[in-house]
Design a protein around this nucleic acid. Structure first.
Lengths: 213, 213
DNA sequence: ACCCTGACTGACGGGTCAGTCAAGTTCTCG
DNA sequence: CGAGAACTTGACTGACCCGTCAGTCAGGGT
């Protein structure tokens, strides 16, 4: 845990806060859940004192909220990088779907953050805009690739491209949810199969084209 | 939720019972969220004292867990009743889909309980079985109607019946989630359209057959 | 009339935890 | 180098809240 990103004052572009505390908070949230996370947990995780946490963030709410937003931003760099490697829309869709599955490790962690954020939004209407922006960003990945693939003729969607994209996103959410929760009948492995078969059906692409593990 | 809206919430006239405390706890959870619900909230909601709550339930966890399970059981009676009215599988599917939408009121409340339960399960692995049993019960409604409708020839699913049922359940979960969260672009109304069009496509049934509001 | 018994009450003990603060340490720049 | 700014610390405070418990009360039973 003592990664101690010390010099990471990186880019003074409006970020006066210590990233290491956010990362620590994110780790704590991932382990215990937002509501159960105490300032002391964050401090311990960051290898510092509770006083320091309060030096950078006025209130507990501030840290937790910042950490949740931060954690939800993290995956995008990786996703962009992976999606940028290839410009074949079929491959890009396959990558996107693969990234949507809560395999143990970072991807499961990201799902946990989603769930925590959703649970918080539910009783904090002021956070709805945050949820919306994160969600629309994720959704646009699907919309873009489906539109692009349809335009190029790689996909022959059974419904308007945007509607198919919405269906894909909803299916990912519904399946992923059960998989993160650890339900026996919906493992990441099974999610992958259901998801790929569905995408293949909806976009009229052979299953094998998406099955590029 | 509707049954408990009765005027019996009165203070101190009606004697508290385990059931009335559960109902009060459910109301409190719905308003504040599981983790934020205090014994005092439940007592106040039930018009009784904190001592009484502890008289019926040993610990806070016990009340909350019992209340969540209780609340998740409530809708089934109503669903069974509505589904039993008709034996046309197309109509029953339409009913089922309609019941899956978090319209403001009891149906939204039920969705909130789902979300609360999910959030709790995420950090309490011992509750996974509870989540699984609730989930498999809900899923079986879809499996049954799709199988039955397929057998009778009312549906001509584009994939094996059970797989189509899984897709429907996942879509309901994914769409409903965004709708409960109050996202502007996914209202109950829009969820209904997307869901019905999807079901129509997957089961090869005319949209109008499902659109029986 | 007397006494159980079981439901119910609410004050209180004690643990927990967010946020404060005074004191100490390290950094920055003239 | 030295002064002040920036940062860090952990003990402390005060609020909050769970779970307990001594006690009240109503309604039987004898």
């Amino acid at each position: 845990m003592d990664a101690m990103a010390k010099g990471t004052t990186t880019t003074r572009t409006a970020r006066p806060t210590a990233a290491s505390i956010l990362a620590a908070a994110a780790r704590a949230i991932n382990r215990r859940g937002v509501e159960a996370t105490r300032i002391a947990d964050i401090a311990a995780e960051a290898g510092t004192s509770t006083g320091t946490v309060h030096y950078y963030f006025a209130t507990k709410d501030d840290v937790l909220l910042a950490a949740l937003k931060w954690a939800n931003e993290q995956p995008y760099a990786r996703v962009d990088e992976l999606l940028g490697r290839d410009d074949d829309d079929v491959v890009r869709l396959a990558t996107l779907l693969e990234l949507s599955i809560p395999y143990p490790g970072p991807q499961r962690d990201e799902w946990v953050f989603f769930l925590e954020l959703w649970g918080w939004i539910l009783h904090r209407p002021d956070l709805v805009p945050d949820g919306e922006s994160i969600d629309s960003r994720w959704r646009s990945y699907f919309v873009d690739v489906v539109r692009s693939g349809t335009a190029s003729g790689a996909f022959r969607p059974v419904a308007p491209p945007d509607e198919v994209a919405d269906r894909l996103v909803a299916l990912v959410d519904g399946l992923g949810l059960k998989a993160v929760l650890g339900q026996a009948w919906m493992t990441p492995e099974r999610m992958r199969e259901v998801l790929l078969r569905f995408a293949a059906d909806e976009l009229r692409v052979p299953y094998e084209a998406l099955d590029r593990r």
